[in-house]
Amino acid sequence: MRQLLRHGRYVLTENRLTLGAFALLLVFVGLALVGPWIAPYDPLATAAAHKLEPPSRAHWFGTDHVGRDILSRVIVATRLDLAIALSAVALSFVLGSVAGACAGFFGGWTERVVSRLVDTIMAFPLFVLAMGIIAAVGTSVVNIIYATAIINFPFYARLARAEVNVRREAGFVEAARLSGNSSARILAAHLFPNCLPPMTVQASLNMGWAILNSAGLSFIGLGVRPPTPEWGIMVADGSAFMVSGEWWIAFFPGLALMLAVFCFNLLGDAVRDLIDPRRRT
């Protein structure tokens, strides 16, 4: 543990970029926690007199076509965007690791069912599958989470299956079995913890992608519904104004989105270096 901490400090300080990303993460987390209280305006309040105003002292990021303050909306949206991505990743992490670990441990029909499921999901272009799911079950925040989790599921399931599979015959598992542990116990107490490090790496590399995915769904109108502040929707709102020069409506939420994804991608790399130094590129 001490060593991990020291190594963590090394990873953070060795690379300024990682340090920057870490600071940025703290900012985003802070905004997600206290956003609604520090936003200068009500994110939903329209003001016909102030519509389409460019960035100014009063409105740092300008106002949109119904006069809402974009800065406030960007800030308030942080919580929703991060929550969606985090829930989706957590959901696929849990489902994928349980299904994958069972498949790797029990083999037989469990394995066949899980691999069929994985193959089926992977047979679709993933974003198209997400679209199809949402079109079928309806647009709502929960459904975006489900759709994003489902298209992420194969990566976790495969990883967990492979990790459990290579250790199934390992000495310590045999020892546990001989000393009378049940299969379920061996799986839960001895094998599962071993898959956690690579799964964590996968999850942190996955966060950025999950954010992009759910924002993409919202952008095309299949996610969060207006007027709820959400980065993807806000970019969509501003897209019509790009051709007439009101760039700020789409620019700032897009920038926030980009920074968030960038931040998570860099941190994902750092987590990988931390947990698995061999996979450095």
Binding site: G232, M242, S244, A250, F251, G254, L255, L266
Partner: peptide, 22 residues
């Protein structure tokens, strides 16, 4: 590579429109 992995495609598209069209 790092930047490309972080770019929301709808954002790049709109920026290109703004810069090259508008």
């Amino acid at each position: 590579v790092t930047a490309g992995n972080s770019l929301p495609i709808f954002f790049t598209g709109l920026l290109l429109v703004y810069v090259f069209y508008y």
